Computed example of a mutant assay.
Amino acid sequence: MSRYTILLGGGLVRTPALDRQIAGTRVIAADSGIRHAETLGIVPELWVGDFDSAPPALPERLKAVPKRQFPSDKDSTDGELAVDIALEQGATALVLAGAFGGPRADHSFLHMALALRLAEKGIDALLTSGTQEGRPLLHAEAVFGYGDGTLFSILGFSELSGLTVRGAKWPLDGVSVPFGSSLTMSNEVRGQLSVKLGQGRALLLAHPLTGKEV
């Protein structure tokens, strides 16, 4: 398995879990995401984008990172370009660090939709800000290692059917969820969390710092 971390422009908090998730990965920074390299104590192998939001002051070791510049008038975001480069280099698993928050809500939405598209193509994708994690749900049972009390929501990107949630304060058994419903918001882990989705597109959004460590 070839694992990559993509540094994106959203918020990022360094946590022990995040350190474990990116350990041993190859790293590509997307434009302003380069600033997270200092927070994480890493040096990317490549820095891509149009550099319209590049930090004005960087340490010398980050200034020296090889760059691949793209024109401002382009059909993809810097983050998507970084993902595409990682896939071209053989990536089979991606950590999208800095995927949430920041000044652009549209970019956060794109990162979630992009992770779903990648998962449907067989690419393991984790979105993270350190305090929040997003994991695409496929049409098979998925088991998660979050501790008791961890807050989580299931975000539907379509109407959902056959949704089963076990190991939660509010379990569900083969339910249908209309698109835009809040039924699957703000649940809590109770034991071993597992989710199975029959039809539709959805993403599990968890807040791991709210639960007990496992």
Results as ranks from 00 to 15, higher is better:
T131M: 15
T150L: 03
I42N: 06
A86L: 02
G162W: 05
L138W: 00
R166P: 01
L138N: 10
I6P: 00
G145R: 15
P178L: 09
G180T: 13
L81C: 04
T25E: 13
F100M: 13
S32N: 12
G134E: 11
L114A: 01
G162L: 06
G90W: 13
A30W: 05
R14W: 03
I28P: 00
V27E: 07
Q21L: 14
I42F: 09
L203R: 07
P55R: 12
T164L: 14
V175R: 05
L8F: 06
L151H: 07
D73Y: 02
S161E: 15
K63A: 08
L209E: 13
D78M: 12
L183D: 02
G180Y: 15
T77Y: 00
G147R: 09
N187E: 12
A97C: 11
V65G: 05
E80G: 06
L155W: 08
G10L: 08
T210A: 14
A206W: 10
G24K: 12
T15Y: 10
N187K: 03
S182K: 04
L160Y: 09
E120V: 07
E38F: 02
G162K: 05
G11M: 00
K196T: 15
S76I: 02
G90Y: 13
A82S: 07
E38H: 05
E159T: 14
L163T: 03
S53K: 03
P136Y: 11
G90S: 14
L183N: 02
L62H: 05
L114W: 07
L7V: 03
L163R: 14
L205P: 01
G90K: 08
Q199E: 13
G211C: 10
V214Q: 11
A142Y: 00
V165F: 01
G198K: 14
F51T: 06
T150G: 05
L126S: 00
L127T: 01
E188F: 04
A93K: 07
D148Y: 11
S72T: 14
W170S: 05
T15E: 11
G130E: 08
G9Y: 02
R61G: 01
T15A: 00
G90A: 06
E38K: 07
